[in-house]
């Protein structure tokens, strides 16, 4: 007799707690969905804030960073003496390793016509250190820019590079415009 009453009381408490939790979960779901919901957003770094500190190469959770150097070819001057490709005081103007700036040899160049060269980035070799980006920005057109290559990015909840970025250049962007490149977006809107 006593026991059944106890069980009823316990059952009642359980039921009301269950209803309470259910209502709470519903409130969270509805509240957040109506307020600030969005589709998937992606991490990206703003090239105008980037200072090429080199953290991108070492802070990414991937052993080879998802940040890559992107060549905005439209901005390139096709120089022979490319400050992003060659060290600042090269012995000779050739592609020998001691003259090249990229530590992984990810930039290659191809002769087009006198005196112009095309520069290409081998993405698998690029580790996002930003050495070329720094020099190209300082002495050239700034056509080499660091960006998160979105197919490489794991889209972590909190980007590990963003945590250490000294200029706080990382933010989440809409998936419809996943790249923040200088001289690239403007071209897109024109065409």
């Amino acid at each position: 007799m006593d026991n059944t009453r106890k069980f009823k009381r316990r059952e009642f408490i359980n039921t009301s707690l269950r209803l309470g939790i259910g209502a709470g979960l519903g409130a969270i779901a509805i509240g957040l969905t109506t307020r600030s919901v969005e589709g998937k957003t992606l991490w990206q770094l703003d090239t105008s804030k980037c200072v090429q500190c080199g953290n991108c190469a070492i802070s990414c959770v991937k052993q080879v960073s998802a940040v890559k150097c992107i060549h905005v070819t439209d901005m390139c001057g096709y120089c022979d003496l490319c400050s992003g490709y060659l060290r600042s005081n090269p012995k000779d103007l050739n592609t020998a390793a001691e003259n090249r700036l990229c530590p992984t040899g990810a930039i290659s160049r191809h002769f087009i016509e006198e005196p112009y060269f095309e520069y290409k980035i081998t993405e698998e070799l690029c580790n996002g250190c930003g050495k070329c980006v720094k020099n190209c920005g300082a002495f050239g057109n700034g056509s080499l820019q660091l960006q998160i290559q979105q197919d490489q990015c794991l889209n972590c909840n909190q980007c590990a590079i963003a945590r250490t970025c000294p200029s706080q250049a990382f933010s989440r962007v809409d998936r419809d415009s996943p790249y923040i490149l200088k001289g690239f977006e403007s071209k897109k809107s024109k065409g």
Binding site: I70, H71, Y78, C79, E118, K120, Y179
Partner: peptide
């Protein structure tokens, strides 16, 4: 731009920017 993009005589075309596509939602 410090060095404007040259006009090529050999008919060279500027390659596209190598940015990867996004997986559809």
């Amino acid at each position: 731009q410090r060095f404007p993009k040259p006009e090529f005589d050999s008919g060279y075309k500027t390659p596209a920017v190598q940015v990867s596509k996004i997986q559809p939602a």
